[in-house]
Design a protein around this nucleic acid. Structure first.
Length: 561
RNA sequence: UGGCCUAUGGUGUAAUUGGCAACACAGCUGGUUUUGGUCCAGUCGUUCUAGGUUCGAGUCCUAGUAGGCCAACCA
């Protein structure tokens, strides 16, 4: 077996360089560190695939670590959803960790910093501290509390921990440099008082560590070798390193933070706050609404884990701003579903066809291939009868040579069945076609091997026998936003670009083999697209979500005319 | 009136670290096909600008330009 030489992304280059410089491969360790304050989305999928992909590549453990330092926003529900989504994507974490597991260690280290004169209690309001912080172009000024005695600091910190103070009355700050060009180094807050129960530690603590103080130390505790995050954390790196310096023991692995650019997907938003707004304002029905770019939404839409992993792999990882066209994601789901989704026939916008020379009351069960891409998938039987539905779009009274479908006076193949010829049609008073009268060639039955069955006719249509058809609710989705990058307009809110027609619910008529489908089953409605059984399906009420349409060359030809 | 990051086809990412700019998607043209799907073949098109170093620059240096990030008791 030869493996195609795959080029490395810049993170892999860094790791290779570290290994070349003597870092032991067995000490490589990664982590995926979500905050349990919302659902995972396609952007997280990229990060998950990066970290777990590195774990697979180097046979290294990857921890799932919940960054749960803010009980105001975090909930167990999100922890459960995140675990479900990571598993569904196909990854196994080494150990499940929580930053809250480290609260005691973090506290002890904080005490140590105070004792070393590197941290102090500030007792000003957040407004006062903000005023002293300066601006990116002007240095800050020192807090009047900056030079409290170590003893006083220790007593106050202990008091904070014991719950003696109100929220907002005191914070612990690192004593670094109020004149630093990096705003994060201007005496950052390490702890704040929050009289709020935590989803894991309950009321054990009423002081909670801030992100910067927690994250790097957690990496260190877990001995994560490469701590990967998005680019907006780049300025945090200096502080990450500073905090690490305070506790670092040279015999241990020193975690290295490196930053990559967040992946942006066109025609959507990927920010928990914005996604939450879509849910709260009823633009979508839930976090797992199939229009949402959340992992759970994509799953419900019919996306496969493989397709998402391949997508993440293809878009790669880099440091520049990007806007990835959603059509690339669609390509990957088509690519996978083409191989695995059974083919079935369903008519979504029906018009009745009567085959006038087919005996009334007669029915035949015809053999239909389940998937031409997978011979092992076998075949099934579909019923044929005198009255069938075809798509309205598949018939025109007159059309030019490019129209490979049914028109008066010409022939077309019914998939898996017979060649029919349209002779006439009926219309209602508004001129809408209500019925097409055809005749069929009884010797042209698919697979019969007769000369007539082998005739080449230009078009092949899908169809469904009216008498046998299953009615189903079909949910057709379109992109949620009309603009390719709705949240990057300076003067317009992303909500202004919402596509009012992102969901269309219609009734479809399906072949009877679909009677016993299960939730999440994925199929291809031939010539239309890929569809997935929605969880709203119940006894006698079939609901399908459209995952994505087939590539549609005909639509393109029409558009260009 | 600051600091930091980034710049390669329409999109995303590569380039053996200074040595013929490539892969995928999208587009276009043909072929196959009982899905206008799939598949196959072909084609289009790229190093932000100006200098510099070098036999040789996408890669290194300088300046410029453009975009992004940074002043939450969020992560």
């Amino acid at each position: 077996m030869s493996e195609a030489p795959k080029s490395l992304n810049f993170i892999e280059h860094i790791i290779e360089e570290d290994l070349a410089n003597g870092f032991p491969k067995e000490r490589l360790r990664f982590r995926f560190p979500p905050e349990p304050n919302g659902y995972l989305h396609i952007g997280h999928a990229s990060s998950i695939c990066l970290n777990f992909g590195l774990g697979l590549r180097y046979s290294s453990p990857v921890n799932l670590r919940f960054d749960d330092t803010n009980p105001v926003k975090e909930e167990q529900e999100y922890v459960d959803a995140i675990k479900r989504d990571v598993k569904w994507l196909g990854y196994n974490w080494d150990t499940e960790r929580y930053a809250s597991d480290y609260f005691q260690q973090l506290y002890d280290w904080a005490v140590q910093l105070i004792e070393e004169g590197k941290a102090y209690i500030d007792s000003q309001s957040s407004e006062e501290m903000a005023a002293q912080k300066g601006t990116p172009t002007e240095p800050g000024t020192h807090s009047p509390y900056r030079n409290r005695t170590i003893k006083e600091n220790l007593e106050l910190f202990e008091g904070m921990k014991q719950g003696e103070f109100e929220e907002g009355s005191h914070v612990l700050r690192a004593k670094i440099d109020m004149a630093s060009s990096n705003m994060l180094m201007r005496d950052p807050i390490m702890y704040r008082i929050l009289h709020k129960a935590h989803h894991r530690t309950s009321t054990d603590w009423c002081i909670y560590p801030m992100y910067d103080w927690t994250h790097g130390e957690s990496d260190y505790i877990e001995q994560v070798s490469h701590s990967l995050c998005t680019l907006e954390f780049l300025p945090h790196r200096e502080l990450y390193d500073w905090f690490l310096d305070q506790v670092y023991d040279k015999t241990k692995v020193r975690p290295k933070q490196r930053e990559f650019a967040r992946r942006n997907l066109s025609h959507t938003v990927v920010s928990k706050r914005k996604l939450l707004k879509l849910v709260d304002e009823g633009v979508v029905n839930s976090w797992d609404d199939p229009r949402m770019p959340t992992i759970s939404g994509l799953r419900r839409r019919g996306y496969t884990p493989e397709s998402i992993r391949n997508f993440a792999d293809t878009i790669g990882i880099a440091k520049r701003d990007n806007l990835i066209d959603v059509s690339l994601l669609e390509f990957h789901v088509r690519e996978h579903l083409n191989k695995v989704a059974p083919r079935v026939m369903g008519v979504l916008d029906p018009v009745k066809v009567v085959i006038t020379n087919y005996p009334e009351g007669k029915e035949e069960w015809l053999e239909a291939e389940n998937n031409p891409e997978d011979v092992s998938s076998g075949s099934r039987q579909v019923p044929f009868s005198r009255e069938i539905y075809i798509e309205k779009d598949d018939f025109k009274e007159e059309a030019n040579r490019k129209f490979f479908r049914l028109k008066l006076g010409s022939e077309v193949r019914l998939k898996n069945a017979y060649i029919i010829k349209a002779n006439s049609c009926s219309k209602d008073t508004d001129g809408n076609i209500t019925e097409i009268q055809c005749t069929y060639d009884p010797r042209s039955k698919s697979g019969s091997g007769t000369e007539e069955s082998l005739r080449k006719v230009k078009g092949t249509l899908h169809w469904v026998s009216i008498k046998h058809a299953l009615e189903a609710e079909i949910r057709i989705y379109d992109r949620l936003f009309l603009d390719e990058s709705p949240d990057t307009h300076k003067d317009k809110d992303f909500m202004e670009f919402i596509n009012p027609d992102s969901l269309k619910v219609i009734k479809g008529y399906l072949e009877p083999s679909l009677k016993n489908v299960e939730i999440q089953d994925r199929v291809q409605f031939q010539r239309l697209g890929y569809f997935c059984v929605d969880q709203d399906t119940s006894q006698g009420n079939l609901v399908f979500n459209k995952t994505v349409g087939l590539r549609d060359t005909w639509a393109k030809i029409q558009q260009n005319n």
